[in-house]
Design a protein around this nucleic acid. Structure first.
Length: 288
DNA sequence: CAGGTC
DNA sequence: CCTGG
C-alpha cells in the first residue's frame, strides 16, 4: 500500500501505546482483533499481510490512523521547545486505533507495572484464555474474549501473574458479559462523560480512563498522565514537582491530575493526546 | 521500583 | 496491593 502522508511504523509501534507487537527479521508481528498482522515499511510503501484472513487497506488505514492530518495536528500541538524537539525526533509517530475491549483490559493490567511486565501479563492471559493461531509453524494467541474471562475464576486469572488486577479483570468481564453494549454505548458520549463512565469500572482511574478514551474512543483531547508525563509537564510549566520531606516525588492526586490534564488541553488544544504520545516517547528515550 | 487504584 | 526484572 502506498502511504499518502508521512508515517513512521517503528515509532508508532515502539512508543509504548501497544503491547502486543514485536519485531522479527525486519517485520512487525502483531495480534489485532483475532488476526495476526505482519507489517513492514519501506519508505512510503507499507507492506502487510494477515492470518488467518487477509485484511483490506481500509483496515490498515484505520488501525494506524492514516486518515489523521498529521501535518496539521503537529503544527497545532507544537507549542513549546520540548514538544518541538519531540516532534523533530519522532515525526511520523501516529496514535493506533485500538479495539475497546483489548485496550481496556491492557491498561487495567498496566497500572503500577513496567512495560516488560505488562507484556508478560497480556501474553499469559492470551495463552490461558485466548485462541491459538498458527502462522508458519509459529503459535500466536489472540486476546481473551469477554465470555472466556467472565467465566474464569479470579484464582485462575491470577495464574497469569496479574496479581491484584485479577479481580478487576474478572469484574469488568462479568459486567460486559451481562451488558454487551456497555462499552460501545459510550461511543456517543463526549470526552468528559466517557471518562467518568469508564472510571466507574473497577480498576479504572483517571489514567486508565484517559488511555482508553484516547486509544480506543478517538478522544484525541484525552491526555493521560503518568509519572513521566507529569515530570515533563512541570518542566514545561517551569514549576517543581511536589515532593515529600525526604525529596521523593509525592504521589499524583486526583485533583492534581485534573489540573495538569486541563492545563495540557489548554496548552496543546484538541489534539493534546498526540502531544502526550510524542512527549512520552521523547522523555522515555531521553531519560533512560 | 514499575506508565495507579481502591 | 501482586510480582518480576
Amino acid at each position: 500500500m502506498k502511504l499518502e502522508s508521512h508515517f513512521n511504523l517503528d515509532y508508532t509501534l515502539s512508543c509504548g501505546q501497544v503491547f502486543r507487537w514485536g519485531k522479527a527479521n525486519g517485520w512487525w508481528y502483531g495480534i489485532v482483533d483475532g488476526s495476526i498482522l505482519k507489517v513492514r515499511q519501506e519508505g512510503d510503501e507499507l507492506h502487510f499481510s494477515a492470518y488467518p484472513e487477509d485484511v483490506e487497506d481500509e483496515f490498515i488505514k484505520s488501525y494506524f490512523r492514516l486518515d489523521d492530518d498529521l501535518t496539521n495536528i503537529l503544527r497545532i500541538i507544537n507549542k513549546d521547545a520540548t514538544i518541538n524537539k519531540a516532534i523533530q525526533q519522532f515525526n511520523g509517530l501516529r496514535i493506533v486505533r485500538q479495539s475497546v475491549w483489548d485496550c481496556l483490559i491492557s491498561y487495567v493490567c498496566a497500572t503500577n507495572a513496567s512495560i516488560a511486565i505488562i507484556e508478560s501479563m497480556l501474553r499469559n492471559l492470551s495463552e490461558m484464555f485466548g485462541d491459538e493461531i498458527v502462522v508458519n509453524g509459529k503459535a500466536f494467541f489472540s486476546f481473551p474474549k469477554v465470555k472466556k474471562l467472565a467465566k474464569a475464576s479470579v484464582n485462575k486469572i491470577k495464574l497469569c501473574n496479574v496479581g491484584y488486577r485479577a479481580r478487576f479483570l474478572s469484574e469488568i468481564a462479568k459486567q460486559v458479559e451481562n451488558n454487551p453494549n456497555l462499552l460501545e454505548e459510550l461511543r456517543n458520549s463526549d470526552y468528559l462523560k466517557l471518562r467518568d463512565e469508564l472510571r466507574s469500572l473497577p480498576g479504572v482511574g483517571p489514567k486508565v480512563a484517559d488511555c482508553v478514551s484516547l486509544f480506543a474512543f478517538d478522544k484525541l483531547e484525552a491526555f493521560p498522565i503518568d509519572v513521566w508525563i507529569r515530570r515533563v509537564i512541570y518542566q514545561i510549566k517551569g514549576a517543581a514537582i511536589p515532593r515529600t520531606k525526604d525529596g521523593t516525588e509525592k504521589p499524583l492526586t486526583v485533583s492534581e491530575y485534573t489540573e495538569l490534564s486541563s492545563f495540557a488541553r489548554r496548552h496543546y488544544g484538541k489534539f493534546a493526546g498526540y502531544a502526550q504520545e510524542y512527549l512520552f516517547y521523547y522523555i522515555r528515550s531521553k531519560d533512560r
